[in-house]
Structure formats: structure tokens, C-alpha cells
Design a protein around this nucleic acid. Structure first.
Length: 852
RNA sequence: GCGGGCGUGGCGGAAUGGUAGACGCACGGGUCUUAAAAACCCGGGCCUUCGGCGUGGGGGUUCGAGUCCCCCCGCCCGCACCA
């Protein structure tokens, strides 16, 4: 080879790694393990350059830890169940399974040329019957442990597609696919009891110190703990069965500021009152509003007086009106509140609307304190509050709770925003829920020996609805308990279930049980998890719940209840957009390869001027996409890997540019040529001269900075110091005393330090330089502390904080010596102009500051 | 509204409270070449010089602030009628 040719050397080295089996992970109690995992992809069709960045980061860590002597587990799989496969089935008539497995084959074939250090022998897809069989076994264990239950719940129902929709799939009250008006329906569904673990999941966050603060905060907010008082109002004039009204409040201190009570439109009492057509109409209106995000944001406070009254808990003669109001949510607290307008903005808006009294009960102590259009929510002392008067807010809260508890009207409680996790989906392409509905025995779990409950192959998607439900025979079965005729559950599990435990399955992907205890004990936890911040809440919270549930059911060790020790959320790869105006005035988007750029701007090949848009997330619709296959073909995998690690810090977005990719490739070619030159140089036994020593020192400094960069997830800084080192090395004179040896050592070290980022080129360099074995298995170089320090240091000398001179002094020189050297400097003397400094600050090896 | 983060050259970005702008991209100049590309070398924050000014703006702490504190402005992300 006479030039850098990635298309030749990359496949060659991948073959060598494969032959040596260097990425095959085996349990080895004698070595410390390291488990690095990137969030596995959904097989949507093709790999995206964003995936490439994500997996390269994980690969850099994995290869670095391998070199550091860890027994590394770095697996990959596919999150393969989900809606897009069914959409493809409806649109193209292809079976979801075929569509999915074809995509997996494509994406695996795209990933392999990237040279990732993945143990492919552990690969699985969540739609593999071997995987979902174990998921069904977990479900049965959870059911037995009381972690799963069934209840009726209100869902968004699309009457055309005949399916349940997630809130995100409802746009302006209509189904995102069908456009049909979405109905609220009550269906009996399966739930995981995640809310039972709310406190545990909340407390656990405190220990996740290697997670981004942002994600921890998001999870805390999502769990949404609040302390307060739950109590019963006595009602006056309510229908039978509603003698009391239960409400929740976090402000029991403001009870004497109450001027009304309000309930949600879905509250049982509100429903009971629907015999009144006016109330029925109001409730219907509220329900409709609740499905459209936009309406909810802008909606005014509305309410309807029920005519019912409630007695104040501290004064039976004090009655408050009860409204049905559009801003009360049925699924938080008890779906009923008492309104204290002076100290809650929503209550105040509502009170102003309805002309209700506004009584301040907390005073900040200011002169002339009144409530205008803004509620007062700050601290202060109680006023207008009888026995609470004069107390601070916190004290008043405790006292109010104590009195209510004493009177037996309620109690102090802790509430969470976190709801139980509904997992039933009326879909085909998901994991079947392994239970049977028996007319005699009711709900009966399937026997474990009958797992998996397999999805049928012969299904059609020509009609809306759930193909499992309308399959002629699939649901027909016998009851595992009585043996009589019974019907299978036709709902499948939410695909978030699949991804909630795959990390555990990777530790023993072929085990006949969900996990293998020895393998799980050895490999868990995931030491470093890497993925997009879009999974900050749901996936990561569900996984934390699952790990706990798997521990309770004996599938994971206690240490694994927090499965991810460290989390890193990486930024996206973005690209600028190119558009022209179509005849209809709308923008027409163009692929990067259709556009020619110069200093004046960009144009199409036919000369049409192109408008350049800001770099945004790559999307097919805006055509600002880069296909990794093209990059590999043109420049090689190492260029793609080096590029996505350069410049931008990994947590931020990186902008892909064609010019940047070319420049990266040129740099790698330069490294290749430099190493080839050095490899051809004859090495003589020779003591290192001054220049050779300087190079050796630079080498050790680079070892330190690259190591720190990788350890600290600052790959861009590691790359920068490698650029700098390459420049230093290239400018050395091979003829200088001892330089041939120093250059060879430097070049070998360069190969080792580049290996995590550009593994193929690094192997080639290593081989050219006569390195032993593969560089991927060579131990990581250690920086020699003795080689890190120079004998002299250059210190800036400041006069009044402004830099006026530089002095060179021996490293570790004392304060007196440094001060003397500074005073002796000509520039310093000029600046001092004979004046005597009032104060002298000397920080050895750092700086001198003279104050005059 | 609540929470989190960010603001540094033309651009991406460096900088344990200690020489702001490392490194890269783009740009300009040069060497080589018939020419171009590649390769190699050199250059640059701003202002008119001595010198001064510079990290969104304003204050403060400090011998010394991009970094710490207070106030303000702008941008990004998440949650959102949560009682």
C-alpha cells in the first residue's frame, strides 16, 4: 500500500479481530468487569449518522476499558416490536415480522463496517420468541408477586382505527393517523404497580450521582411527591352516597381562606349530577377539551355551580358552594379541591370569574397588603385564621393537620404524581400478555411450560383494529386451571416493557430463564449507559422499576435495583438544510449531495440559488440526512468515527459538514504517511538529546491528556491533544540524537491513543511499527510522572493584574528566587518606573503579581 | 408558570480563580507545479501608534474573574391547570 486506503485496511483488521475473538465477553472472576451499553436501536430501516455517534462513544469507552485490563461486555440488539412495523404492514402489505427482520439485517450490515467492539454473539431482537418468552415468564412472576393487576381505565379511543392511542398520538382531539374524533372509553387493562415504588424510586435518585443532574431532576418531577392533608367535607344537598366529599390539599394552613370547593368533570359526584342536562353538557365539554393540548393551555377557568354545599371542617355553620370546574384533574389527588383564591392563582382567577370572596390568610407583613390579580404564595404569618393566627406557614400546616386528624375528619398524606403504568395495547406487533380468560375460573395465568404464547403468522392488516382479536382461531385455548374452553388475552404489552430489562438479558442472552443468576451477579450493573436524553423519563424510570421488580422476583441481585451506575446523554448529529421555492411558494428540500457550496452561498447544479437553513436534527422530510454507507465508501469508518468525536463536546449537538469530513480524512492520511516514514527509519542505540527528550515528554503529556479526556467524557479534548501531538511529532528532526527511538516510541503511543477512536488505522500503524500482537489488546500506556514536568517554567509577571512580562525560572523555585527574577526583568523595571510594590503575590510555578 | 442548561473570534469550541481564544473548520499569503489538486510553510480577536479594549449587559468579592456572588437581557431543553 502506498497511500492511506481505508477500504483495504478496515475490512482486513475487522477480520483479524473476528479471528482473535477479542470482543467475545466471557465471565472471568479473576478480572474486574466493565459493562458498557448504548441504548439499542429501533429497526426503522437504516442506520443514521446519529446512531454512529452514539455507538462510537460507547466503543471508545469499551476499547479504552479493554486496554485498561477490564473484562468488557459491550453488546448490541434491537428494540424490535412497535407500531411502525404495523404501519408498514398496512401501507405496503408486508408482514411486520418480515419488515422488522429485513431492517435488522440491513442495519447490522451497516454497523459491522464501523468496526465497533461489539460481542455480536449476544445479539437479540425483542421480537424473537426466545426473548419474549422470557418476558412473559417475568410477567407471570410479577403477577404472582402482586406487581401486576387489572383495572378499568379511561383511554383515548380511535373509533376508525379501533385502537387505543397514547396522549401524544392525539392531535387537536383527533387520531394522528385516522383524523377521527377521539373518544374517551373505559377499558379494562393491565397495569404495573410502579406507583407502589414511588418513594423508593424517588430516594434512589439521590444515589445516582453519575447521572446528569437534568435527568435526575426530570425523574424527581415526574414522580412528583407532595405532602399535604386529605380530609372529608360534609355535604349539604348532595345525592345519596355522597354524604362526604374527600379533598386533597398541600396548603391546609389556608383553610380559613376557603371560599368554594370544586370537583373534576369526571368525579363520581359530577357524573351522578348528569341527570341535569346543563351539568351533563358542561361535563361533556370539559372532557372534549381535555384531549386537546392547545385548548387546555389557553382555556379560561370555567365552572358550573352544582347547588350542593359543603360545611367547613373547622366551622359547621360555614358553608361553601361546590362547583364542577374545568381545571380540576380527576387523576390527581382525589379529583376535588377546596379553593383558596388569595393564595392560589387558579383559584383566584376562578373566584374573580364567579365573584367569590377573596380572603387573605397569609400576610408577608407589608403595610397595606392586599390581593389584586395575583395570588400571594410566599411565606408569612397567618391572619384571619382564628386559632392559626400569628403562626408561620409551616407551623400552621402542622397544626391544621393535627386538628383535622384529632377530629377524625382526615389525615396528613403523601401523594405522588406518578401513575401506575398501563401496559395493554390493542396491537399485533408486541409481546402477547400470557393470560387466559376462562368463563369458569376468570383470569388464569398461562403455565410457564406453555411459553411462549406465540404471535400467529397468518394475520391480515387490511382492516383496522387488532388482528389478534379478529383472528379466527388464535385466541381459542383451554383453561390452564380447569381445562375447559377459554379465550386468550388479545392485548399485547407496551413496547417500553421490552426495553425495560434487555440490559439484564444481555448478561445471559440464551439462558432458559429470564436471567442466569451467576452471569447477572457478575456482569450487572451497567457501568456506563449511553443514549439520548429523550429517554430521560419513561425508559429510564421503567427500567429502574423493572430492575426492582426483577430483584423481588429473584431474577436480579440486590445490587442491581439501580441497573445503570452511570448515564451519559449525548447530543444529536445535526446538518444544515437546503431549500428552494417551489412553484407553489412552499419550500422544496434538497439533499446535501445535490447542492454545491462556495463562499458566496450554495446552488443546485443547474445554478438555482439555494437557501441555507440552520443545522437541525436530521430528518427524511427535510432531506438533511447523511448516510453512513456513503461516508464509509468515500472516507472509511475511521474518518466517520474521528469526525463525530472531534470538536463538539459529546453532550452537545455536532454539525456534520462535508468539508469537515474531508478534512478529517486528510488528517488521518497525514498520520498514516507520517507513521510510514517513521517505520522506515533505522533505530540506533543512542542517548536521547534535548530534542528527543522534549518529544518523549510531549508523548507522556499526551498520554495523560488523552486518558483524562476519555475518562471525563471529553472526547473532543482528547482528539485536540492528539492533533497537537501529531503536529509536534511531524516537526521533529529524525537525525537528532536519540530521535529515531523517540519517534518510534511516540508513533507507537500515538497508535495506542488513537485506537479507541480510529481502531483500524491504529492497527495498521501498530503493524507498520512492529508492535506485538494487536493494538486493541495492548495495555493502555501509562504516563511516567517523571516525564510530565519540565525543569523550567515560564511565569507571567503582572503589574496590578495586567501581564507585563514573562520570566523563566527553574520548576519549584522558591518565592524569594521568583520575586528576585521578576524584579530583575527589564520590562518589569520599566513598568515599575522606580516605584516599590505595595504588595507582592507569588504563586510558585504559576504567576507573579506586583501591586503598586 | 415551575425546573434544568447555555451565552467566549467568521464557525465548532479550549481554559484546577492565575498569560483568554488550545485544537479543528473556514479564510488569506507563500513554496512546489506549464496549471490545478494534493503536500508543505507562514498569518490573523478588536482599536490609529506608545498603548488601550476585549468572554451577552450592569454591579460586587479578589492582588487577580470567562470561571465565584447579586441583578438584568437573550437563547435552548423538559414538565405543565398537580390542588
Amino acid at each position: 500500500m502506498d497511500r492511506y486506503s481505508p477500504s483495504e485496511l478496515e475490512p482486513k483488521w475487522q477480520e483479524e479481530w473476528e479471528k482473535a475473538g477479542v470482543f467475545r465477553a466471557r465471565r472471568d472472576e479473576s478480572r474486574p468487569k466493565y459493562y458498557v451499553l448504548e441504548m439499542f436501536p429501533y429497526p426503522s430501516g437504516r442506520i443514521h449518522i446519529g446512531h454512529t455517534r452514539n455507538y462510537t462513544m460507547g466503543d471508545v469507552i469499551a476499547r479504552y476499558k479493554l486496554a485498561k485490563g477490564f473484562n468488557v461486555l459491550h453488546p448490541m440488539g434491537f428494540d424490535a416490536f412497535g407500531m411502525p412495523a404495523e404501519n408498514a404492514a398496512m401501507e405496503q402489505g408486508v408482514h411486520p415480522g418480515k419488515w422488522t427482520y429485513d431492517n435488522i439485517a440491513t442495519m447490522r450490515a451497516q454497523m459491522k463496517p464501523m468496526g465497533f467492539s461489539i460481542d455480536w454473539s449476544r445479539e437479540f431482537a425483542t421480537c424473537d420468541p426466545e426473548y419474549y418468552a422470557q418476558q412473559q415468564a417475568l410477567f407471570l412472576d410479577f403477577l404472582e408477586a402482586g406487581l401486576v393487576y387489572r383495572k378499568a381505565a379511561v383511554v383515548n379511543w380511535d373509533p376508525v382505527d379501533m385502537t387505543v392511542l397514547a396522549n401524544e398520538q392525539v392531535i387537536d382531539g383527533r387520531g394522528w393517523r385516522s383524523g377521527a374524533l377521539v373518544e374517551q372509553r373505559e377499558l379494562t387493562q393491565w397495569f404495573f404497580r410502579i406507583s407502589d415504588m414511588a418513594e423508593e424510586l424517588l430516594e434512589g435518585i439521590d444515589r445516582l450521582t453519575a447521572w446528569p443532574e437534568k435527568v435526575r431532576t426530570m425523574q424527581r418531577n415526574w414522580i412528583g411527591r407532595s405532602e399535604g392533608l386529605q380530609f372529608r367535607f360534609e355535604t349539604v344537598g348532595a345525592p345519596e352516597g355522597f354524604e362526604t366529599l374527600e379533598v386533597f390539599t398541600t396548603r391546609p394552613d389556608t383553610l380559613f381562606g376557603a371560599s368554594f370547593a370544586a370537583i373534576a368533570a369526571d368525579h363520581p359526584l359530577a357524573k351522578a349530577l348528569e341527570t341535569d342536562p346543563e351539568i351533563a353538557a358542561f361535563n361533556a365539554e370539559c372532557r372534549r377539551m381535555s384531549t386537546t393540548e392547545e385548548a387546555r393551555e389557553t382555556a379560561d377557568k370555567k365552572g358550573i355551580d352544582t347547588g350542593i354545599r359543603v360545611r367547613h371542617p373547622f366551622d359547621p355553620d360555614w358553608e361553601l358552594p361546590v362547583y364542577i370546574a374545568n381545571f380540576i384533574l380527576m387523576d390527581y389527588g382525589t379529583g376535588a379541591i377546596f379553593g383558596c383564591p388569595a393564595h392560589d392563582q387558579r383559584d383566584l382567577d376562578f373566584a374573580r370569574e364567579k365573584g367569590l370572596p377573596v380572603t387573605p390568610v397569609v400576610s408577608p407583613g407589608d403595610e397595606g397588603f392586599t390581593i389584586g390579580d395575583e395570588a400571594y404564595t410566599g411565606p408569612g404569618r397567618m391572619i384571619n385564621s382564628r386559632f392559626l393566627d400569628g403562626m408561620e406557614v409551616e407551623e400552621a400546616k402542622s397544626e391544621a393537620i393535627r386538628r383535622i386528624e384529632e377530629a377524625g375528619q382526615g389525615r396528613g398524606v403523601v401523594r405522588y404524581r406518578l401513575r401506575d403504568w398501563g401496559i395493554s395495547r390493542q396491537r399485533y406487533w408486541g409481546c402477547p400478555i400470557p393470560v387466559v380468560h376462562c368463563p369458569a375460573c376468570g383470569i388464569v395465568p398461562e403455565k410457564k411450560e406453555n411459553l411462549p404464547v406465540r404471535l400467529p403468522e397468518d394475520v391480515s392488516f387490511d382492516r383496522p383494529g387488532n388482528p389478534l382479536e379478529r383472528h379466527p382461531t388464535w385466541a381459542d385455548t383451554s383453561c390452564p386451571a380447569c381445562g375447559g374452553k377459554a379465550r386468550r388475552e388479545t392485548d399485547t404489552m407496551d413496547t417500553f416493557v421490552d426495553s425495560s430489562w434487555y440490559y439484564a438479558r444481555f448478561t445471559a442472552p440464551r439462558a432458559p430463564t429470564p436471567t442466569d443468576p451467576d452471569e447477572a451477579a457478575y456482569w450487572m450493573n451497567v457501568d456506563q449507559y449511553i443514549g439520548g436524553v429523550e429517554h430521560a423519563i419513561l425508559h429510564l424510570l421503567y427500567s429502574r422499576f423493572f430492575a426492582r421488580a426483577m430483584h423481588r422476583t429473584g431474577h436480579l441481585p440486590a445490587k442491581a435495583v439501580e441497573p445503570f451506575d452511570a448515564l451519559f446523554t449525548q447530543g444529536m448529529v445535526v446538518h444544515e438544510t437546503y431549500s428552494t421555492r417551489g412553484p407553489d411558494g412552499r419550500p422544496r428540500w434538497h439533499l446535501p449531495e445535490e447542492v454545491e457550496r462556495d463562499e458566496k452561498g450554495a446552488r443546485l447544479r443547474d445554478g438555482t440559488k439555494v437557501e441555507i437553513g440552520h443545522a437541525t436534527k436530521m430528518s427524511k422530510s427535510k432531506k438533511n440526512v447523511v448516510d453512513p454507507d456513503d461516508i464509509i465508501r468515500n472516507f472509511g469508518a475511521d474518518t466517520a468515527r474521528w469526525f463525530v468525536m472531534s470538536d463538539s463536546p459529546p453532550e452537545r449537538d455536532v454539525e456534520w459538514t462535508a468539508a469537515g469530513a474531508e478534512a478529517t480524512h486528510r488528517h488521518l492520511a497525514r498520520v498514516w504517511r507520517l507513521v510510514r516514514t517513521i517505520a522506515s527509519e533505522e533505530v540506533r542505540e543512542e542517548a536521547p538529546g534535548e530534542a528527543a527528550t522534549a518529544l518523549l515528554k510531549a508523548t507522556h503529556r499526551t498520554i495523560r491528556s488523552v486518558t483524562e479526556g476519555i475518562e471525563g467524557f471529553a472526547f473532543n479534548r482528547a482528539v485536540a491533544s492528539l492533533y497537537q501531538f501529531t503536529n509536534t511529532l511531524a516537526h521533529t528532526d529524525a537525525q537528532a540524537p536519540g530521535m529515531a527511538q523517540a519517534r518510534r516510541f511516540a508513533a507507537r503511543t500515538l497508535a495506542q491513543l488513537m485506537q479507541p477512536m480510529t481502531p483500524h488505522l491504529a492497527e495498521e500503524m501498530w503493524a507498520m511499527l512492529g508492535g506485538e500482537g494487536l493494538v486493541v489488546t495492548a495495555p493502555w500506556p501509562e504516563a511516567d510522572p517523571a516525564m510530565l514536568a519540565d525543569e523550567t517554567v515560564t511565569l507571567p509577571v503582572q503589574i496590578n493584574g495586567k501581564r507585563r512580562a514573562e520570566i523563566v525560572v527553574p520548576r519549584g523555585a522558591g518565592r524569594e528566587a521568583i520575586e528576585a527574577a521578576a524584579r530583575a526583568d527589564a520590562a518589569v523595571q520599566k513598568a515599575l518606573a522606580g516605584r516599590e510594590p505595595r504588595k507582592v503575590i507569588v504563586v510558585p510555578d504559576r504567576i507573579v503579581n506586583l501591586v503598586i
